[in-house]
Design a binder for these strands. Structure first.
Lengths: 332, 332
DNA sequence: TTGAAAGCGCTAACAC
DNA sequence: GTGTTAGCGCTTTCAA
């Protein structure tokens, strides 16, 4: 029914081996033979079976991608970067959502390894010990994208979250603010707890400002949480006049909260975000934001993975991409 | 090196067939035997090779997903719906972006079929004749998600775009507007040209309003296009007072354009959108919008695909999901 | 430059 | 209940 390599071999009066050679671009085939085989392939509409090929060659030219949630813009952006580079190197991608749930992450890892992927790009906001251990046992290379493994044992691609956050808070400090809040996503996420928060604290302390725990709020990274954060923080006896938001949605929530209670941004209230998604330009005032270049991170991670799969020597497993702050109108 | 079914058979003193049976949950295995095998599997950390399994069984438990662009929220939402249901039925997903480019769509189809996917979910804003033909030749089932095939030859999941659009325009008409603009995404997309636009025209004509071609603007579905559309339309001698926007970004661009030139929404200008992404709640005023339930469409499409792959009888290949309009503040 | 043949790791009759 | 065996469709030595 389906045409196999054997069928074209027979029709072309050559052996399977020869057909295999022309299909795989092996040069050791006489041009005339190649031509003949190619014609038969065309005529029979032969399409190589990648599964059989994978079994024989032990390579599937597909990589696994485990991300928390594809419907979240930040991860979708990274996924696009990963897929673009994968395509460029002729890999396909098996994509799955973990919802940042350790058990799912473990199952997915196992499933993908069962499917014999040649490598894995992983995004996880919290590399737990168990996950870490499973990853160590992987027979194929894994690279972390926009995800921090504190043991520094895996290949990874990130920006300098601490430095970027420090600069963001500093910008607010330089504008004269004494009461600066940090409105964060989940503190279970390594990046939030170990970098953004720590950088916030250090910037405050370095500037001899009072570090007030009441000014640190954490919930999820959503718009509604931003609005809520505004409400609780603005109700303080001595409310903040500036905000360092962990995400664009949080920042927008904060801004809308402020505006809805008649405060002017940035005249009275200043907000700096950490993300710079396309949302940043779609609010008034437009967001000043640390740029978290997810597309690039995904792309670089995938490129790194191809190198490792290809056994090229890697100079640096822990890639740090340069960051910058995009200045717009939510900060003076 | 890697442990195979043969290794566990040997260690457990049973045949490969028996191991295969326990791995596949076949009931014809004595409990004691099963237990013994399971222990060996655990001890040896045996992980079945899905590629070998796929070659032998001719099923890969993976489906292909071809979408225009995963970094676009609308498609990401659908992808999430697809993946959730796929996971539920133990399928994995090979995801690829077509950029709505016919050639890429064709190549991707071919690649995925080569990888022996068991089925395909396809999103394409324009099913061209060539694409149509390739899809017809697919040896595995294909279902269209949020995509219209006018021949109605393939399984598909959609909403009633025409009716939904008609209702949207009608809402504006009922609010007394005489000059209503249609600000659309690309008119090459079937949904835009055959449904939204046609419904707009019919609603205008049915209400005995003047159908003015100057009020029909098409570019891409972006925020910036929305702003531009505002600029060109508001510069008209007899500018529109209401807008039917093809997407949330377009609607937000329109609103910001209006607000930036001092117009009040919805007091002076009313806008209704077609999408209802989470952006709809993140603008002031919040968007009134036709809801385009992409997550559901993806989920239902995948569910439909599982049924077809499973050779269940399908009562209706062309599923139409109910639609509704979410009323918020951009329309009075 | 080409062919023969031995797997790759598993499933699925079929036999016992 | 369990084992034997013949593939699944291809790659990859090894010879010629």
């Amino acid at each position: 029914m389906t045409v196999t390599i054997y069928d074209v071999a027979r029709e072309a009066n050559v052996s399977m081996a020869t057909v295999s050679r022309v299909v795989n671009g092996n040069q050791n085939v006489k041009p005339a033979t190649r031509k003949k085989v190619l014609e038969v392939i065309e005529r029979l509409e032969y399409r190589p079976n990648a599964v059989a090929r994978g079994l024989a060659s032990k390579k599937t030219t597909t990589v696994g991608v485990i991300i928390p949630d594809i419907s979240n813009n930040i991860y979708a952006e990274a996924a696009r970067g990963i897929e673009d580079i994968a395509t460029m190197y002729r890999y396909n991608i098996i994509l799955a959502n973990s919802d940042q749930n350790e058990e799912k992450e473990l199952t997915l890892l196992d499933t993908m390894l069962g499917k014999q992927v040649d490598g894995i790009v992983m995004m996880s906001d919290a590399v737990t010990p168990k996950l870490h251990q499973s990853m160590e046992h992987s027979p194929v290379p894994i690279v972390l994208a926009g995800s921090v493994d504190e043991s520094n044992q895996f290949a990874s691609v990130n920006i300098d979250y601490f430095q970027a956050s420090y600069e963001a808070v500093q910008m607010l400090i330089e504008n004269g603010h004494k009461r600066i809040a940090f409105v964060s996503g989940p503190l279970q996420y390594t990046i939030n707890s170990k970098f953004k928060l720590e950088a916030y604290k250090k910037a405050i302390i370095d500037a001899n400002l009072e570090l007030d725990e009441n000014l640190i709020v954490s919930d999820d990274d959503t718009y509604d949480s931003g609005i809520e954060a505004w409400e609780t923080l603005s109700a303080l006896d001595n409310p903040p006049t500036a905000f360092f938001a962990g995400s664009d949605e949080l920042a927008i929530g904060l801004i809308h909260g402020a505006q809805d209670s008649g405060r002017k941004v940035p005249d009275e209230i200043e907000v700096i975000s950490f993300e710079n998604s396309k949302l940043a330009r779609m609010v008034r005032p437009q967001l000043t934001s640390v740029v978290f270049p997810l597309y690039d991170i995904g792309a670089v991670a995938m490129r790194l993975l191809t190198k490792i799969m290809n056994k090229e020597t890697i100079d640096n497993q822990s890639v740090i991409i340069p960051h910058r702050i995009e200045k717009r109108k939510s900060v003076k």
